[in-house]
Each structure stands twice: as C-alpha cells, then as structure tokens.
Design a binder for these strands. Structure first.
Lengths: 100, 100
DNA sequence: CAGAGAACTCTATAATACAGAGTACTCTCC
DNA sequence: GGAGAGTACTCTGTATTATAGAGTTCTCTG
C-alpha cells in the first residue's frame, strides 16, 4: 500500500499546505496572520509547524516589514506543491480502498 | 476550518478503515492476516491499532476458530462507516483549499 | 511611558507510534 | 512425542510529536 508523507500528513500542516496550494503558483503566498485565522492554531504552534515545513523544503518563508510591522509570508515551493500533490493522490488511493 | 478525526487520521488506522469501508456493508469484514498484508504492519502494531478503533466503536472484532486455528475478523461498525465518511469529506474539503 | 500587536523561541507535559520480545495455543512433520 | 511454524496477541521500552503557554523583541499608538 502507498505510503503517506509524514511531514504533510499532520493535520495542521495539511491545512497549511492545502491553503497554500489552493493559490495559483504565481501568487505571493499567505501571511502568518492569515494562516493563523485559517487554521485556528496558536502563534507558537503555527510557527513551529511552518518551520517543519520549511526544513523539509516544502515552503519558503519571507520576512518583511509592512509599514513598521513585521510580516511573515509563507509560500509553497515547487517541491512542496509536488509533495502535496503526491500526498493527495496517495490519500485518494487509500480512501478508494484499492487493495494491493 | 473543519476538524479531522484523530482516531482515523493516523496512517495505519486510515488504511484499516479504508480497507474495511471498501467492502459492502453486508460483507463479513477482513481477517487479521489479510489486514496485516494490506497495511504492511507488524502483528503487535496492527493489534494495537485495531484495539484503538474498537475502543472508539469504529470496528467490531470477532474471534473464531477456523479449523483449529484462531481467526480474528474485523468489521466496520455503522458508527465507523459514518466517521470514516465524515473524515473523508473533511479531508476533501481541506484538500480543495476551501478557506473559511 | 503603558499597552498592544506581530511573530516568534523555549519549555514542559502528555500522548503516540512503533518495533521487538515474549506468550498461548494449535497444527504438521519426522 | 518433540521441533518448528502459524495466529493473534500483550507488554515493554524508546523515540518522536503535538500542543499550550510563557516569555521575548521590536514597533506603533495614546
């Protein structure tokens, strides 16, 4: 049976990747605060999971200042989009109950 | 954002539930050894996860003797089928990136 | 200066997952 | 009858992880 990607499988990270993936590849990404609202995660938790994804090379993180406030923007990398697509395909295979 | 079912989300348990769910509701279920082959899990691991699913009321476990060998058959309960269906729906919602 | 907002890092706890060893019972083969 | 294998565990130990929450740094506003 096909193997799931542990990095992506975690619920919060799955949500993050899905949210980023739903954007066109040319889009800028999502800001920290937007992801926080979408996922309902706490600051610390979200930051930790973004780091896990970044370490895996699935997202890139850009820090900038908007006005004088810090703003972190998270974008899915090509590798991240690929891994997400494969993960979803694997999920669908499992869900369909293809046995073998 | 919708919440995933922790019991079902674990990869091995997801595979078990998917395999059981792919059978018609009238079917007898799957034997321990068949599930072991399908999932690639070890005996102990598989037993433990079946117990977790059974405790949650998602599967029922029947022990019988076939010839003189013990045979354990695992069947999805109505609750289990419902929870699995909801879980899959939630997954699909997340994957589709519906934001909000 | 006090307070608030952004985006953390760090710490501590609690829950898992998983492998592997060991157990109990039964069958087959010599 | 004894050795070895198969089924389906239970138990133990380790290692990873998730998560909350506290504390930190910087900046702006009143």
């Amino acid at each position: 049976m096909a193997e799931l990607d542990d990095i992506i499988h975690q619920p919060l990270r799955l949500k993050i990747m899905a949210a980023l993936n739903s954007l066109p590849a040319t889009a800028a990404g999502l800001e920290f605060s937007r992801l926080k609202k979408l996922t309902g995660a706490t600051d610390g938790n979200l930051g930790a999971h973004i780091e896990t994804l970044a370490k895996a090379g699935y997202v890139s993180v850009e820090k900038a200042f908007v006005g004088k406030k810090p703003q972190t923007t998270v974008t899915a990398t090509a590798a991240g989009r690929g891994a997400f697509a494969r993960h979803v395909a694997t999920l669908q295979e499992i869900i369909a109950g293809r046995q073998g």
